[in-house]
Nucleic acid binder design. Structure first.
Lengths: 198, 198
DNA sequence: GCCAAAAGTGGCAGAGACTGACAGATTAGA
DNA sequence: TCTAATCTGTCAGTCTCTGCCACTTTTGGC
């Protein structure tokens, strides 16, 4: 086993499992009663842990829905770095987001429910936007390097934020019940709306 | 004087003055000590009112910096509606934001300080982006009407959010100390970053 | 299998944001 | 001047979130 042991080991597995369980229960409760009508104490009771432990896994109540922003942000950034440098920036960004959507670890039903809850509560939307700001800080330097000419930073920030808006709109639309399109398809269309001439 | 009396009268004037005063004091304190290191109680004491009254004027502590989102959003929407219908959508949006920046009522120094504070605290940035979501809900229907073809709503949402991102980036960059460009100029450049072919 | 070190957990106390209810003060308008 | 609407402060309370300490469980070396 020792050659198999990675930083963390079984402990990390247990931790991830508890974390996922809390998130699942919380989203279910929020979906049924509304975010503001569910207390951390109730979530803790439903899971079978103390309120103190819930706050240990998630710094803020909102994070039970959002998850770990930094992790996925790094994922997108790594994808972007790996794209060929002569590829148009918008194509590279689209491909990077697509890779994130294709990640197998994501539970479709649970993810959709989380997005739905997210859309109904201002506090959650705000926290989600904070995640986007974190992503933007990671992606902007990479995009800046791909640009030429004046105002590289300003233009990079604009492009990154606009692409994140596309990503957000695609997922939000996808979470709505009547939408039969895949998130991937919606993402492509949203990107297309910013490049009418391409 | 009676012919001068508008709905609200002197009471509304006093109310607006108190509101402005609280906001001003709060921003100053945040700028000096950091948003998280200033309590509502301290703001109240500095102004000379009770903490309860601060919460009466501003539902959340963050709102002391952000101000009234709905009002300015309506302003932008009205501007947009007034634009000629054959004008390209991006030009119309740019002109609408420019009109907002040109509004005389805005205090330059205080506004810049508020934007600076806003940029240093994630919670504030997020709350500010929530304001943008409110604006988006107002602007999207107007933009949708100007579009033809498929996916009008999705495309309208994308365009509106992207333009709001430009607006945010322009103001944030403008608030940074080393920037000598006007907010208007930055806004134009940010818009330009999304239309390389135009 | 045993034992120290590390990590996880729960309970407690407390700060801080925010809300509802009530009573007193202030002001607008008849 | 008088009445009614409005404003304000005080109080009590809920909820989120954090540090602290004691206790239990797990890990890794012997």
């Amino acid at each position: 086993m020792s050659d198999f042991t990675r930083p963390g080991g079984t402990r990390a597995i247990a931790r991830d499992a508890v974390r996922a369980r809390i998130s699942e229960v919380a989203v279910d409760l929020f979906d049924e009663h509304g975010f503001d009508n569910v207390t951390v104490e109730q979530i803790a009771a439903a899971v079978g842990v103390s309120p103190r432990s819930v706050h240990r896994y998630f710094p803020a109540k909102e994070d039970t829905v959002i998850g770990d922003p930094a992790g996925w942000g790094e994922h997108v950034r790594d994808q972007l770095v790996a794209r060929p440098s002569d590829e148009p920036i918008w194509d590279a960004l689209l491909a990077s987001y697509e890779a994130l959507l294709a990640t197998p670890g994501r539970n479709e039903t649970q993810g959709k429910k989380a997005m739905r809850v997210l859309g109904t509560t201002p506090a959650l939307r705000a926290r989600n936007l904070e995640k986007h700001l974190l992503w933007a800080r990671m992606l902007t330097p990479v995009v800046t390097e791909r640009l030429d000419g004046d105002d590289r930073t300003l233009r990079a920030e604009t492009i990154v934020q606009a692409s994140l808006a596309c990503f957000d709109i695609a997922l939000t639309t996808w979470a709505e019940a009547n939408s039969s399109d895949s998130a991937l398809e919606l993402l492509r269309r949203s990107f297309g709306a910013l490049q009418p001439t391409a």
